[in-house]
Amino acid sequence: MKFVTFEKPNGSNRAGWILNEAYAVDMHEATDGRLPCNLIEFLDNSEENIKIAAALSLTIDHKGVYLLSDLHLKAPLPNPRSFRDFYAFEQHVKTARENRGLKMIPEWYEIPVFYFSNHMAIKGSGEEIIKPKECDWLDFELEVACIIGKTGRNISAAEADDYIFGYCVLNDWSARDLQRKEMKVGLGPAKGKDFSTSIGPWIITKDELERFRTGKGFDLAMKARVNSVQLSKGNLKELYFSFGEMIERASAGVTLYPGEVIGSGTVGTGCILELGEKVHPWLKPGDKVELEIENLGILENTIIEESR
Protein backbone atom coordinates (compact mmCIF):
# COMPACT_ATOMS: atom_id res chain seq x y z
CA MET A 1 0.00 0.00 0.00
CA LYS A 2 1.03 3.60 -0.65
CA PHE A 3 0.17 5.94 2.22
CA VAL A 4 -0.23 9.66 1.65
CA THR A 5 -1.19 12.89 3.41
CA PHE A 6 -3.18 15.36 1.34
CA GLU A 7 -5.13 18.60 1.39
CA LYS A 8 -8.75 18.19 0.33
CA PRO A 9 -10.68 20.75 -1.74
CA ASN A 10 -12.28 22.06 1.48
CA GLY A 11 -8.82 22.88 2.88
CA SER A 12 -8.64 20.09 5.47
CA ASN A 13 -5.59 17.83 5.71
CA ARG A 14 -6.18 14.08 5.88
CA ALA A 15 -4.19 10.86 5.56
CA GLY A 16 -4.97 7.68 3.67
CA TRP A 17 -3.70 5.58 0.81
CA ILE A 18 -3.62 5.45 -2.99
CA LEU A 19 -6.39 3.47 -4.71
CA ASN A 20 -6.04 2.26 -8.32
CA GLU A 21 -3.18 4.77 -8.87
CA ALA A 22 -5.69 7.56 -9.61
CA TYR A 23 -7.55 8.00 -6.31
CA ALA A 24 -6.80 8.66 -2.67
CA VAL A 25 -8.74 7.33 0.29
CA ASP A 26 -9.48 9.57 3.26
CA MET A 27 -9.06 6.75 5.78
CA HIS A 28 -10.98 8.52 8.55
CA GLU A 29 -13.99 9.31 6.36
CA ALA A 30 -14.00 5.99 4.51
CA THR A 31 -14.05 3.99 7.77
CA ASP A 32 -16.57 6.17 9.63
CA GLY A 33 -13.89 7.19 12.09
CA ARG A 34 -12.40 3.75 12.78
CA LEU A 35 -9.10 4.99 11.42
CA PRO A 36 -7.56 8.33 12.48
CA CYS A 37 -7.20 11.53 10.47
CA ASN A 38 -3.39 11.56 10.39
CA LEU A 39 -0.59 9.09 9.82
CA ILE A 40 1.15 9.59 13.17
CA GLU A 41 -1.91 8.31 15.03
CA PHE A 42 -2.30 5.53 12.47
CA LEU A 43 1.29 4.40 13.12
CA ASP A 44 0.70 4.28 16.88
CA ASN A 45 -1.32 1.12 16.19
CA SER A 46 -0.05 0.34 12.72
CA GLU A 47 -0.35 -3.46 12.74
CA GLU A 48 -4.04 -3.42 13.65
CA ASN A 49 -4.80 -0.38 11.50
CA ILE A 50 -3.23 -1.92 8.40
CA LYS A 51 -5.48 -4.95 8.88
CA ILE A 52 -8.51 -2.65 8.97
CA ALA A 53 -7.33 -0.79 5.86
CA ALA A 54 -6.50 -3.96 3.91
CA ALA A 55 -9.89 -5.49 4.73
CA LEU A 56 -11.84 -2.63 3.18
CA SER A 57 -13.45 -3.30 -0.19
CA LEU A 58 -13.45 0.16 -1.73
CA THR A 59 -14.66 1.37 -5.11
CA ILE A 60 -14.23 4.79 -6.66
CA ASP A 61 -17.82 5.58 -5.61
CA HIS A 62 -17.21 4.79 -1.95
CA LYS A 63 -17.46 7.54 0.65
CA GLY A 64 -14.06 9.13 1.30
CA VAL A 65 -12.55 8.26 -2.09
CA TYR A 66 -11.24 11.24 -4.10
CA LEU A 67 -9.53 11.82 -7.43
CA LEU A 68 -5.83 12.46 -6.88
CA SER A 69 -6.07 15.29 -9.41
CA ASP A 70 -8.48 17.09 -7.05
CA LEU A 71 -6.08 16.86 -4.10
CA HIS A 72 -2.80 18.46 -3.10
CA LEU A 73 -0.30 15.89 -1.82
CA LYS A 74 1.68 16.95 1.24
CA ALA A 75 4.65 15.25 2.85
CA PRO A 76 3.29 11.78 3.68
CA LEU A 77 4.47 12.19 7.29
CA PRO A 78 4.42 15.99 7.77
CA ASN A 79 5.57 15.98 11.42
CA PRO A 80 7.62 12.88 12.18
CA ARG A 81 8.56 12.33 15.80
CA SER A 82 12.26 12.53 14.95
CA PHE A 83 14.65 12.34 12.00
CA ARG A 84 17.98 10.52 12.20
CA ASP A 85 20.08 10.53 9.04
CA PHE A 86 22.79 7.89 8.61
CA TYR A 87 25.91 7.75 6.43
CA ALA A 88 25.54 4.26 4.98
CA PHE A 89 26.78 4.32 1.35
CA GLU A 90 30.54 3.74 1.11
CA GLN A 91 31.02 5.26 -2.35
CA HIS A 92 29.53 8.59 -1.29
CA VAL A 93 31.63 8.77 1.87
CA LYS A 94 34.88 7.85 0.12
CA THR A 95 34.41 10.19 -2.84
CA ALA A 96 33.26 13.14 -0.76
CA ARG A 97 36.30 12.74 1.52
CA GLU A 98 38.70 12.29 -1.40
CA ASN A 99 37.41 15.52 -2.92
CA ARG A 100 38.49 17.26 0.30
CA GLY A 101 41.87 15.50 0.38
CA LEU A 102 40.85 13.16 3.19
CA LYS A 103 41.26 9.40 3.56
CA MET A 104 38.59 7.05 4.83
CA ILE A 105 38.62 6.55 8.58
CA PRO A 106 38.48 2.94 9.87
CA GLU A 107 35.78 3.81 12.42
CA TRP A 108 33.28 4.34 9.57
CA TYR A 109 33.38 0.59 8.86
CA GLU A 110 32.86 -0.30 12.52
CA ILE A 111 29.56 1.45 13.30
CA PRO A 112 26.76 3.09 11.31
CA VAL A 113 26.80 6.75 12.36
CA PHE A 114 24.02 9.33 12.20
CA TYR A 115 23.03 12.85 13.15
CA PHE A 116 19.69 14.34 14.16
CA SER A 117 18.08 16.87 11.84
CA ASN A 118 15.07 19.19 12.07
CA HIS A 119 11.96 17.00 12.06
CA MET A 120 9.75 20.11 12.05
CA ALA A 121 11.04 21.34 8.68
CA ILE A 122 9.64 18.55 6.50
CA LYS A 123 8.42 19.30 2.96
CA GLY A 124 6.51 17.18 0.47
CA SER A 125 6.80 16.66 -3.26
CA GLY A 126 5.87 19.79 -5.19
CA GLU A 127 6.59 22.13 -2.28
CA GLU A 128 9.08 24.94 -2.71
CA ILE A 129 12.40 24.91 -0.85
CA ILE A 130 13.60 28.27 0.45
CA LYS A 131 17.33 28.79 0.00
CA PRO A 132 18.80 30.17 3.24
CA LYS A 133 19.88 33.78 2.73
CA GLU A 134 23.43 33.18 3.92
CA CYS A 135 23.87 30.02 1.79
CA ASP A 136 25.72 30.07 -1.55
CA TRP A 137 26.46 26.33 -1.75
CA LEU A 138 23.01 24.72 -1.77
CA ASP A 139 22.97 20.98 -2.48
CA PHE A 140 20.52 18.09 -2.84
CA GLU A 141 21.10 14.58 -1.45
CA LEU A 142 19.54 11.45 -2.98
CA GLU A 143 18.45 9.14 -0.15
CA VAL A 144 15.83 6.67 1.08
CA ALA A 145 13.87 7.06 4.31
CA CYS A 146 12.65 4.23 6.51
CA ILE A 147 9.60 4.88 8.71
CA ILE A 148 9.40 3.22 12.14
CA GLY A 149 6.03 1.56 12.74
CA LYS A 150 6.36 -0.10 16.17
CA THR A 151 7.84 0.85 19.54
CA GLY A 152 11.10 -0.92 20.38
CA ARG A 153 14.32 -0.67 22.34
CA ASN A 154 17.67 -2.46 21.88
CA ILE A 155 16.39 -3.92 18.61
CA SER A 156 18.73 -6.37 16.91
CA ALA A 157 19.44 -6.04 13.19
CA ALA A 158 17.91 -9.49 12.68
CA GLU A 159 14.56 -8.45 14.13
CA ALA A 160 14.52 -4.85 12.92
CA ASP A 161 12.27 -5.53 9.93
CA ASP A 162 9.40 -6.14 12.35
CA TYR A 163 9.67 -2.48 13.42
CA ILE A 164 9.61 -0.97 9.91
CA PHE A 165 6.36 0.41 8.51
CA GLY A 166 7.59 1.45 5.08
CA TYR A 167 9.94 3.49 2.90
CA CYS A 168 9.95 6.68 0.84
CA VAL A 169 12.25 8.95 -1.17
CA LEU A 170 14.22 11.48 0.90
CA ASN A 171 16.08 14.66 -0.05
CA ASP A 172 18.41 15.81 2.72
CA TRP A 173 18.95 19.41 1.55
CA SER A 174 22.34 20.80 2.56
CA ALA A 175 23.76 24.30 2.90
CA ARG A 176 27.32 23.13 2.30
CA ASP A 177 29.06 26.41 3.15
CA LEU A 178 27.26 26.64 6.50
CA GLN A 179 27.89 22.95 7.14
CA ARG A 180 31.59 23.22 6.31
CA LYS A 181 32.17 26.10 8.70
CA GLU A 182 30.27 24.68 11.67
CA MET A 183 31.84 21.22 11.38
CA LYS A 184 35.31 22.74 11.75
CA VAL A 185 34.30 23.38 15.35
CA GLY A 186 33.80 19.64 15.87
CA LEU A 187 30.00 19.50 15.98
CA GLY A 188 27.31 19.19 13.35
CA PRO A 189 26.02 19.12 10.79
CA ALA A 190 23.31 21.28 12.32
CA LYS A 191 22.49 24.68 10.81
CA GLY A 192 23.65 23.42 7.44
CA LYS A 193 20.72 20.96 7.52
CA ASP A 194 18.24 22.90 9.64
CA PHE A 195 16.13 24.60 6.97
CA SER A 196 14.44 21.74 5.09
CA THR A 197 14.15 18.02 4.39
CA SER A 198 11.83 16.59 1.72
CA ILE A 199 10.09 13.20 1.79
CA GLY A 200 7.48 11.66 -0.49
CA PRO A 201 5.51 11.48 -2.62
CA TRP A 202 4.15 8.61 -0.49
CA ILE A 203 5.27 5.93 1.95
CA ILE A 204 5.19 2.44 0.48
CA THR A 205 4.70 -0.38 2.97
CA LYS A 206 7.62 -2.75 3.44
CA ASP A 207 5.80 -5.79 1.98
CA GLU A 208 5.71 -4.06 -1.43
CA LEU A 209 9.52 -4.06 -1.60
CA GLU A 210 10.24 -7.56 -0.34
CA ARG A 211 10.62 -9.02 -3.83
CA PHE A 212 13.46 -6.54 -4.52
CA ARG A 213 15.50 -7.45 -1.44
CA THR A 214 19.12 -8.33 -2.14
CA GLY A 215 22.19 -8.24 0.09
CA LYS A 216 21.82 -5.47 2.64
CA GLY A 217 19.40 -3.42 0.58
CA PHE A 218 16.96 -3.60 -2.30
CA ASP A 219 17.55 -3.71 -6.05
CA LEU A 220 16.01 -0.30 -6.72
CA ALA A 221 17.54 2.18 -9.17
CA MET A 222 18.08 5.70 -7.80
CA LYS A 223 18.38 8.83 -9.97
CA ALA A 224 18.61 12.57 -9.46
CA ARG A 225 17.86 15.26 -12.05
CA VAL A 226 18.29 19.01 -11.93
CA ASN A 227 16.26 20.96 -14.48
CA SER A 228 15.54 17.64 -16.26
CA VAL A 229 19.25 16.78 -16.65
CA GLN A 230 20.27 13.54 -14.92
CA LEU A 231 23.26 13.99 -12.60
CA SER A 232 23.12 10.99 -10.26
CA LYS A 233 22.67 7.27 -10.69
CA GLY A 234 22.89 4.60 -8.00
CA ASN A 235 21.07 1.66 -6.46
CA LEU A 236 19.71 0.95 -2.99
CA LYS A 237 21.40 -2.46 -3.03
CA GLU A 238 24.74 -0.63 -2.64
CA LEU A 239 24.13 0.04 1.07
CA TYR A 240 27.14 -0.87 3.21
CA PHE A 241 24.98 -0.89 6.35
CA SER A 242 21.46 -2.31 6.17
CA PHE A 243 18.45 -0.51 7.59
CA GLY A 244 18.42 -3.29 10.20
CA GLU A 245 21.93 -2.33 11.29
CA MET A 246 20.95 1.34 11.36
CA ILE A 247 17.93 0.58 13.54
CA GLU A 248 20.07 -1.57 15.85
CA ARG A 249 22.43 1.36 16.32
CA ALA A 250 19.66 3.94 16.73
CA SER A 251 17.77 1.84 19.31
CA ALA A 252 20.79 0.89 21.44
CA GLY A 253 19.82 2.08 24.91
CA VAL A 254 17.05 4.20 23.37
CA THR A 255 13.35 3.57 22.69
CA LEU A 256 12.22 4.13 19.09
CA TYR A 257 8.60 5.14 18.55
CA PRO A 258 6.20 4.89 15.59
CA GLY A 259 6.60 7.86 13.28
CA GLU A 260 10.36 8.27 13.65
CA VAL A 261 12.33 8.55 10.39
CA ILE A 262 15.64 6.84 9.60
CA GLY A 263 17.56 8.18 6.57
CA SER A 264 20.00 6.07 4.56
CA GLY A 265 22.50 8.78 3.78
CA THR A 266 23.44 9.72 0.24
CA VAL A 267 23.89 7.12 -2.49
CA GLY A 268 27.09 7.26 -4.52
CA THR A 269 27.04 10.22 -7.00
CA GLY A 270 23.94 11.50 -5.18
CA CYS A 271 24.93 15.13 -4.53
CA ILE A 272 26.86 18.06 -6.00
CA LEU A 273 29.45 17.90 -3.21
CA GLU A 274 30.47 14.48 -4.47
CA LEU A 275 30.09 15.19 -8.20
CA GLY A 276 31.93 18.49 -8.13
CA GLU A 277 30.97 21.94 -9.41
CA LYS A 278 32.40 21.13 -12.85
CA VAL A 279 29.55 18.65 -13.28
CA HIS A 280 26.93 21.04 -11.92
CA PRO A 281 27.10 24.34 -9.99
CA TRP A 282 25.49 24.72 -6.59
CA LEU A 283 21.72 25.03 -6.70
CA LYS A 284 20.09 28.42 -7.16
CA PRO A 285 16.53 29.81 -7.06
CA GLY A 286 14.50 28.50 -9.99
CA ASP A 287 16.26 25.13 -10.11
CA LYS A 288 13.97 22.10 -10.09
CA VAL A 289 15.31 18.95 -8.42
CA GLU A 290 13.76 15.54 -9.05
CA LEU A 291 14.77 12.45 -7.09
CA GLU A 292 13.45 9.21 -8.55
CA ILE A 293 13.69 5.79 -6.95
CA GLU A 294 12.30 2.74 -8.66
CA ASN A 295 8.94 1.69 -7.15
CA LEU A 296 9.10 4.55 -4.62
CA GLY A 297 8.17 7.37 -7.01
CA ILE A 298 9.47 10.85 -7.82
CA LEU A 299 10.14 13.55 -5.22
CA GLU A 300 10.22 16.96 -6.90
CA ASN A 301 10.97 20.39 -5.45
CA THR A 302 11.85 23.83 -6.81
CA ILE A 303 14.27 26.23 -5.11
CA ILE A 304 13.08 29.75 -4.31
CA GLU A 305 14.69 32.86 -2.78
CA GLU A 306 14.04 33.87 0.81
CA SER A 307 11.36 36.59 0.61
CA ARG A 308 12.43 38.55 3.69
Rank of each mutant, 00 (worst) to 15 (best):
S125I: 10
G186Y: 10
V93I: 15
K181Q: 09
G149M: 09
E260R: 04
L138D: 10
F83P: 00
S57E: 14
V113Q: 11
S69I: 01
T5G: 08
T95L: 06
I304F: 02
T266E: 11
S57L: 09
I272S: 08
G101V: 12
N45C: 10
T214W: 01
G152I: 04
R100P: 07
T269Y: 11
I105W: 00
E274T: 10
E306N: 12
P201T: 14
S307M: 03
N227Y: 09
R84H: 12
R225G: 00
D162M: 03
S232D: 11
L142R: 09
V267Q: 07
L58R: 03
S156P: 14
A30Q: 05
F83L: 15
N227D: 14
N171D: 13
F212A: 12
V4C: 08
G149A: 10
I122L: 12
S242A: 11
M104V: 09
G217F: 10
E260P: 00
W173L: 05
P258K: 04
L102G: 03
A24L: 02
A22L: 08
A158H: 14
F116M: 12
C271K: 02
I60N: 10
S82N: 11
T266W: 13
D219G: 08
K131D: 04
V261F: 07
L43E: 11
K216I: 15
G166L: 15
A157R: 09
E238W: 04
S196H: 02
I155A: 07
S57D: 14
G265H: 04
Y23T: 02
L220S: 06
D172T: 15
A145W: 14
R225Y: 14
A121D: 00
A15R: 02
K223C: 02
G253E: 13
V113N: 11
E306C: 04
D162V: 01
A121V: 09
S196P: 00
I155P: 10
F116S: 13
L71H: 05
D219Q: 09
G297Y: 11
K288Q: 13
A55V: 02
F195L: 09
I52F: 01
I52W: 05
G64W: 04
G259Q: 05
C135L: 06
A221V: 15
L56R: 01
R34E: 13
A250E: 01
E110D: 13
S82M: 09
D194W: 05
I204F: 06
D32R: 03
N10P: 02
I262F: 08
I52D: 10
A175Y: 00
L187K: 00
L58A: 05
M183W: 08
A88E: 10
I155D: 00
L35F: 12
S156E: 10
G200P: 00
R180A: 13
V261I: 15
E260K: 03
A15L: 01
L170N: 07
Y109C: 05
D26G: 03
V254A: 03
V261E: 11
M27S: 01
G124I: 08
P258N: 01
A160K: 01
L71A: 06
G215I: 05
V93C: 07
K181D: 13
K288R: 14
A250P: 15
Q230L: 02
I247T: 08
G192W: 12
N295M: 15
E141Q: 06
